[in-house]
Design a protein around this nucleic acid. Structure first.
Lengths: 123, 123
DNA sequence: CGGCATCCACTTGGATACTG
DNA sequence: CAGTATCCAAGTGGATGCCG
C-alpha cells in the first residue's frame, strides 16, 4: 500500500506500527499498567482508571482479542466478571515499567525538577 | 481532580499518563523511531513516514517543545530545515527498540507464527 | 522547500439510559 | 454488576492551496 525506500527501515517502521496497533491509543497501556498489579472486576477498573464503561468494554475486548487479558464470568449472584492479564501480557511488564520511569525522568528533565513528593500535593 | 484510592497505584498511573502525554498518540513513536537513525529534512520525513505535512509539523513542534528533537534552519537557497533527535531523546532508544521487538514477538504469538520473511510478501 | 490555513471526513470518547 | 445502544462533542488527520 505504501512504497518505502529502504527495506531495513521498513522493517523497524512496520514493527513499531504493529506494536502501536495493539497497545497504542489513549488507554491500552494505562489499563495494562494497572491490570498487571492484580485481578480486577469491571467496575473496579472503571473507577480506578477513570474511564467510561463503554470505552473500557471496547478496550478490554481488543486486549482480549490480542491475548493480553482474560475474561472470567463468576457465578456470583449479581454476576461479576474478573479480568486478568495473561502470561503473554507479562512480556510487556518491563517495557511498561521503563515507560513509567521515563515519564518521571522526563518530567524532571523538561518540566523542571520540582515534582513535590506527590504524597499529598496531588489534589 | 480525581480521587484515587491507593497512592502508590496513583503514582504508577500518573507516570504512565505523563509518558503517554509526551510520546503517545498515533505518530510520536513512529517519528522518533525513524528519527533516531539520522538527521532528516522535513520533506524526507513526510515521505519516509507517510504522514501529511500538516500533522508532521504539529508533531515535530510538540516533540521540540518536549526537547526531544531540534530544528535547524539551513542557509541553503530554497531554505531547508534539518530535524535531529536530542541526547534526551536517546533515553528512549532502548524503550523503542523493546517496543519494536515486542511487535515482532507479538505477531508470532497471536497472529500466528508465519511472518513470511517480509522481503517480498508485504504487498 | 518548509509549513501554515482552511475545509472536511472519520474516529474517539464521554454521558446517559437501558437490558440481562 | 456487567455491558450495550444511542446521542453528541471534541479531537484527529488527510487534501488542497498558498505564502515566505
Amino acid at each position: 500500500m505504501k512504497t518505502f525506500s529502504s527495506p531495513e527501515c521498513q522493517g523497524a517502521h512496520r514493527a513499531m506500527r504493529d506494536t502501536l496497533d495493539v497497545i497504542g491509543g489513549k488507554w491500552k497501556l494505562v489499563i495494562l499498567s494497572i491490570m498487571l498489579q492484580r485481578k480486577w472486576r469491571f467496575k473496579e477498573l472503571v473507577r480506578e482508571i477513570g474511564i467510561s464503561p463503554r470505552i473500557l468494554s471496547k478496550e478490554l475486548q481488543e486486549l482480549e482479542m490480542n491475548k493480553l487479558v482474560t475474561r472470567t464470568v463468576c457465578n456470583t449472584r449479581p454476576i461479576t466478571v474478573e479480568y486478568e492479564v495473561t502470561p503473554h501480557s507479562r512480556s510487556l511488564e518491563t517495557v511498561i515499567q521503563a515507560l513509567r520511569e521515563w515519564g518521571v525522568m522526563h518530567r524532571q528533565e523538561v518540566i523542571g525538577k520540582k515534582e513535590p513528593a506527590q504524597v499529598e500535593a496531588i489534589v
